[in-house]
Design a protein around this nucleic acid. Sequence first.
DNA 1: TATATTTTTGTTAGCGCTAACACATTGCTT
DNA 2: AAGCAATGTGTTAGCGCTAACAAAAATATA
Lengths: 340, 340
Amino acid sequence: MARRRSQTPQKAQPTMHDVARVAGVSQMTVSRVMRGTGYISKDVKNEVVKAAREMGYVHNRLAGGNATYDNPIVGVVIPTMQNRVFNEVLSGINDTLVESGLRPVFGVTEYSLETEEDVVFDLLSWRPRGLILPGLEHTPSLRKIIAQTGVRVAEIMDVDGDPISACFGFSHAQAGEDMARHLIERGYRRFGLVGSQGGLDLRATKRFDAFSKLVTSLGAEVVARENDTQASSMEAGRKMTSALLDEPNPPDAIYYANDDLAAGGLMHCLANGIDVPKEVALAGFNGLGFLSALPKRITSTVTPRYKIGADAASWILRTSSADAGLKSDLGATLRIGETT
Amino acid sequence: MARRRSQTPQKAQPTMHDVARVAGVSQMTVSRVMRGTGYISKDVKNEVVKAAREMGYVHNRLAGGNATYDNPIVGVVIPTMQNRVFNEVLSGINDTLVESGLRPVFGVTEYSLETEEDVVFDLLSWRPRGLILPGLEHTPSLRKIIAQTGVRVAEIMDVDGDPISACFGFSHAQAGEDMARHLIERGYRRFGLVGSQGGLDLRATKRFDAFSKLVTSLGAEVVARENDTQASSMEAGRKMTSALLDEPNPPDAIYYANDDLAAGGLMHCLANGIDVPKEVALAGFNGLGFLSALPKRITSTVTPRYKIGADAASWILRTSSADAGLKSDLGATLRIGETT
DNA sequence: TATATTTTTGTTAGCGCTAACACATTGCTT
DNA sequence: AAGCAATGTGTTAGCGCTAACAAAAATATA
């Protein structure tokens, strides 16, 4: 076993050198066996694997990264952990990455661009093979450090704007307009908007802006807005819906920033005997699976969450940096339910 | 700038040496500034920080870990990403870790102990400062490699058993019994159990076992079980509830493996005019926030998810490995709602 | 059988960084 | 002004690993 300088709480781990000694080969041969590269005879390979297993040796991939400038890491930034949308995005990222022997390292911004800057800086200290960032909006400092380090960046969830290198998502403006057109067609004219995160969710804002603009131009109007500062949840949706409908001239249709909020709205109506969609129509966003379990299927926009994550991850994995300026619109489709 | 051997797609990053040259100091001084250790004069510090910023230098923490046997990493294993419970646990872990300048690296097992073994082995190749594992059940090989490497391990979510070193959670047996006692007290006698993951969720199994045992000993009985192989969700809960209640002699109370399933059950009853709790009582598990948004507050067991994550993470951070055999029961409390 | 080719193993240098120690310099006592 | 501690900076060695380049051994070819 190798001697150690520092008195870490951990036991001294064996090194390749130790394995090599036990197996009676050179350390380089052990390295080759561990990575499965180059020529190795079967006998030696077995010998090395056996010795490693017996000693409990685990390949130290980070030390190797040091020598090759290539750590098996992708930095992944998400706005929040409190939203299931990102569970699915992360699943897509994780599955794709793990398949290639890499792992994501996460950072959470809580919807703050300043925090995002800090998080990215921290993530960069891991010398990741690439970075996955939410949205196309970033601070100038963030852009600068990205440019300086030349790190590969994939932006996800949005395509309305100019990506740093490549983006994978869908058009929120389009999604907002689609929903506006649908609701107008169904005869609704007085709209309420319900969001969360105090307007910091820039993609939701894009949807709402496009929605408002279109309904206004079609002769309808947005009569009320609610925007809780707290995280999105069914509770928040229920509370805000209640507030909205208690006003003197309530809207006849409510467009929510996401399905959780909309489901909360539906629950409020259900509990208070408000007929949906006769008295008020409800529309969500994301098309999450749980909608199908609700008493009424809520109209929503289905977004390709898993695929966004998977595509972004595999773009990072592709070594060619050829496809700069790539805009991958994975599409989001309106799914009409029983609430509009 | 340093010359590079390999032709990575990334731009050549400046090193401490480069920064040192620009700032006109030794590389060691740059190292000290970056880590904020030792004595550094203000002038030199400013000079170095300025140079680093201008060059876009980012401290490479992984290379340092190589020299100190101490990477800023904690390996975190979770059964699935499809369950919001783990969002909160991860939040607790992440918040605590990031505060100390570390980051979690995740692995997902999909409720398979064999996969867990592979994941842990992979995570170990990152030489993490510690590992956080779900539950107290692991394969012998897993235990062996843990023992061999001497890595610090915190087990979470359960305290019914013997931890490798320390565990943070609550007693599932206790939770199951508490619920059993409550339902018996309310007069229910014919119980249904609804789970997911095909019984692979070992903690849910512990609850169900303790529940079944107690109700049986109190003269009641478990008359039906449903156990979907797919992931837990409201949809699955609704489907299984429907199946359960369509049988000739349906249960008068259903105990679900978690709140999502229970909420799905409630939705089924709501949509089909089944009176809860008169015709059938429903009980969930976890006490998630969204329950308060449902038309009827579902009886559940509130679990300290965030705190479990936070406590486990800060135990990992504590360097003393003194407290071996630590069992931290954070408690789970029955919360009676309107569905029982 | 001699030579070229392929396969297998080893040696050397060095990745970017930090611990440990050495050596200045400064300010403070007395 | 001498002595001393505190402060500031540099030098050296080496972490665990891999690329690049030998060199030896096995195999194929002429």
